[in-house]
């Protein structure tokens, strides 16, 4: 805790925001990207599902690193991107009443 405080002024709100964004936001982002990727990959349905899921852990890791490497306001760009990915991934289910 002392390391967080000693850098002059209240650093911890920024750190806390980043942690929450990285962990929770990261999961949501990865979830959306995996869903979108599963739908977009030009493979058989089962292969697309497996491949996209296998990659997800690398995506999540990179996202977490990125949230800490870039200024927090840049990280907020993840929000609209996530929304778009969710639409790609789940659009057919939400708007066309179910997939398969």
């Amino acid at each position: 805790m002392s390391k967080l405080v000693s850098r002059g002024g209240a650093v911890w709100p920024n750190a806390l925001a980043r942690i929450l964004f990285a962990v929770l936001g990261g999961y949501v982002f990865t979830y959306s990207l995996t869903a979108a990727l599963a739908r977009l990959l030009p493979l058989a349905r089962i292969d697309a599902a497996i491949s996209a899921t296998l990659l997800s852990f690398a995506v999540y890791t990179v996202f977490v690193l990125w949230v800490f490497a870039r200024p927090l306001r840049q990280a907020l760009w993840a929000l609209p991107v996530t929304l778009v990915l969710l639409l790609i991934g789940f659009g057919p289910q939400w708007f066309a009443g179910g997939e398969v």
Partner: peptide, 12 residues
Amino acid sequence: IYMPAATDALYN
């Protein structure tokens, strides 16, 4: 289990 996104999107 950890990442059910593809299951949710493609298999409901």
